[in-house]
Simulated assay, not measured.
Amino acid sequence: MSEKNIQQDRPAFHGSDIEQIEQYYKIPAESIIKFGANVNPLGLSATLKKDLAEHLDVITSYPDRDYKELRSAIADYCGVKMEHVVTGNGSTELISLLISERNARHAMVIGPTYSEYERELSLTGGRISEYNLSEEHDFHLDIDDFAKALADDVDFVILCNPNNPTSSAMKKDELRSLLELCNSRDIFVMIDETYVEFAPDVSEITAMPLAATYDNLMILRGVSKFYAAPGLRLGYGVTSNQAFLDTLKKHQNPWSLNSLGAYAGVRMLQDKDFIQKTRSLILSERERILNELNSFRYAKAYPAYANFILVKILRDDLTSFDIFDQAIRHGMMIRDCSSFEGLPGEYIRFCIMLPEDNTRLLHCLAKSLA
């Protein structure tokens, strides 16, 4: 039996499996640096923490059923119309609602990507196809090739932009071409922009400016990653398809977002100091990390638009689990990408943390890959 076959019998951990990792490796969870979670290393904004502590009494009242203040703040933040904004209990709720309401006959998912899309699609009973991005093109979508792969009955396309786990991204002109193609074939497009705020130039890759023009589009975002608030469960979507918005709201539970989430959301999106600090950290560290990785003999790092980097292992005697195991034994949890469908080969993914932690990880990876 080959070494790589032996590795397949070992456990596969996801980014949130900290308790399982603690049990398996006998390492205290609080001592592990979570390079697999893709959450802003600065944590929750100190300004927001203070503000929330002083306004906890908002939970004694129901939130505004229409979330007008929050939707107005989102509209200003994204440069869209307030009437095109819907809020939800995390982007997960909106993904679920969108997929169930579209009830696609044949959905195509652009991968390799987040597995939750296909899980939700499987509940609707329709056909699911995958179009996997090519490693030869650094996981960048080729529109012409994608068009050829679209079956005649496809009526729903899902894209994560920037994509997880590849950190690749489509630019606005390419997104426009994709939407034109799909519009001409009566295909609705869902674009998940969970990681867009980490991009070097957000305006270059966000689909928000296209929302008013294309009513076959819904864009989803949340505050879990950039604002380091996954427990708040605040997500939002933008679409100019009013009929679909009305249907979505009709099937959504009232007050699906609690009062604290509605209050915090407004303040988060207006916290310019926190936004600037986060972007400054991520942009400078991403460049530094990529530069160092590019000097490694046995690693290929791909262009990154999100706050994480995908790396291909170029040593035949090393697997992604080997590198994961090496890192976790030094108190650093990265992502072994072997569980991602459509990603053949040996890959790891890790997010950008504080500079000193990033340096520790690079030194660890260098032992096997430099």
Score class of each variant (00 low, 15 high):
F226I: 00
A46F: 14
D316F: 05
R349H: 03
N258D: 13
S61G: 00
E174P: 06
I275C: 10
Y263C: 04
Y298A: 04
K225Q: 14
D173T: 13
A262E: 08
D186H: 12
L121V: 00
R286V: 06
R279T: 08
I313A: 00
M108G: 02
L48I: 11
M268T: 05
G90F: 02
I282D: 06
K4T: 08
H330Q: 14
P28V: 06
N307H: 09
F274K: 05
V58Y: 05
K4V: 02
G15A: 13
E174S: 13
E130A: 08
F188M: 11
A147H: 12
A107I: 08
Y227R: 08
P303Q: 04
C337L: 10
K277R: 14
L269S: 13
N294Y: 05
L141I: 14
A37N: 13
S167N: 07
E130V: 03
V154I: 11
R102W: 08
D153N: 03
K50A: 08
D186S: 13
D144H: 04
V223D: 03
V238S: 01
E180F: 05
R286I: 07
D17H: 03
R71L: 01
L290K: 03
K300S: 03
M170S: 11
Q242A: 06
T113K: 04
F13Q: 03
I205C: 12
T239K: 02
G345H: 07
F198W: 14
F13M: 04
Y117L: 04
R288G: 12
D76H: 02
D138E: 06
L354S: 14
G126I: 02
Y62T: 01
A104D: 01
Y131L: 00
M170G: 13
N132Y: 14
I6D: 12
S320H: 07
F226D: 00
S129R: 02
L141D: 05
S96W: 08
I323K: 05
I328F: 00
R233F: 10
S339M: 14
S72Q: 04
K225H: 15
I289P: 12
T359Q: 15
Y77K: 04
P344K: 08
Y227E: 07
D357W: 08
Y263W: 10
T47L: 15
V157G: 12
